[in-house]
Design a protein around this nucleic acid. Sequence first.
DNA 1: TGTACATCAGTGAACGCGCGTTCACTGATGTAC
DNA 2: TGTACATCAGTGAACGCGCGTTCACTGATGTAC
Lengths: 231, 231
Amino acid sequence: MSTRAERRDTTEAAILTVARRLLAEGGLEALTVRGVARELSVAPSGLYRYVRSRQELVGLLISHAYADLADEVEAAHDDVAPEDLRGRWRAFAYALRAWMLAHPHDWMLIQGIPIPGYQAPADPAVLPTMRLHLLLIRLGADAEAAGVCPHVSASGSAPAIPGLPSLLALSGLQISEQTALAGMAGWHLLGGVLYSEVFQLAGNELTDHDRYYDAMVAASERLIFGDAPDD
Amino acid sequence: MSTRAERRDTTEAAILTVARRLLAEGGLEALTVRGVARELSVAPSGLYRYVRSRQELVGLLISHAYADLADEVEAAHDDVAPEDLRGRWRAFAYALRAWMLAHPHDWMLIQGIPIPGYQAPADPAVLPTMRLHLLLIRLGADAEAAGVCPHVSASGSAPAIPGLPSLLALSGLQISEQTALAGMAGWHLLGGVLYSEVFQLAGNELTDHDRYYDAMVAASERLIFGDAPDD
DNA sequence: TGTACATCAGTGAACGCGCGTTCACTGATGTAC
DNA sequence: TGTACATCAGTGAACGCGCGTTCACTGATGTAC
């Protein structure tokens, strides 16, 4: 209402915007307090009215990126008809890559860089970190309901996926461990492909990354849903 | 022969050793010229008799890491009887992880961090970067010879794996693109798992990573070699 | 074998850099009477 | 409505830090005659 509060909100937003741009342009190391101040034509010390430390600034961007990624992937996934299980998986896979290509440095921030000292926010409501996992659980539960039973199983007695029980509790759904393992395998396959793409491990030659990804998505689909697609 | 040359060699080696230790202990950012000098009880400027720049020092460690990884993985792979295709794949998979766990920062250096300005050495002989790819091609060729034909195929006409032709030329072997894609899918699956393990994306809870990896290796094996193992 | 010169490993001081963060301050925006 | 005080956004100078790298130097190790 008051001018003061309004102005505070707008400069808060401006700081975030500039910070995201610096991150997008120069990666994490370009995201500095002084850099943001410079871009905003403001004394560096001034930013400390809005942000306790550089660490906190980075933390804000991490949360932001998580939420943004989850938003886009969920939207793409939810656009597909619920019965089309393979389509939902594909939508998931392609939305992941699209977001990564659009925000490579944010992707690295979330997935690639162990931030020393970054602590994920506490557990209120649905942690943005877990939204994608929850989405996969939904998909897995639906697949089981439809009779699709991917048979990735572990050798021993209780391999236990990290955090699976708490995720199941959060989602209120139930899936077998075999399903969960299959989902994780597919997820890791995609993750591996995307990693090698962001980090340009593939070599300089500009080959057709799109087609390559198609093949990898197909592989992950086969891994999860079995051999014969219905086309 | 002469004392001078000997001493040069030993301090060269000492520099590399210390550099590797710094990297192992504190990651890339801890690997500094001054840090190495400090550890060696030597003036920082002295190091410039041995190394042109920090960049070059990092480059040395990258080459070293590539070679070391390839050595270990090749050794593990070659220990398995050639007919045991699945066993060779498993040996590959487990050697990868073992090396990563033993040298996490080296792993990140190779796989995880886009080094600004690092240029891989030119093409003399077998690039260490490609030794693992060549190993996979060997395995793929043997699998084809044994009649194993994993059916990951691309949708379009020519998806073209990055650099595959030149790798085939280097190896003197031939494998179909389907086989190559299957191999890459398996490789990416493992890569994704290992990434999430090094970067501790899995959450803090100390679950059984070994068992989890077992399941993922099994999934990759199924992806490549098909459904029914012979046990 | 002994002397004169060249090589070169290592020194130590200095350069300039950008960083995160603190601190006392100014001046405008808000609030209470 | 007008005055007295509190709040607080933003300033600018300064701190200490560690870094990569240069440069003129010393003194020991090697080499040629």
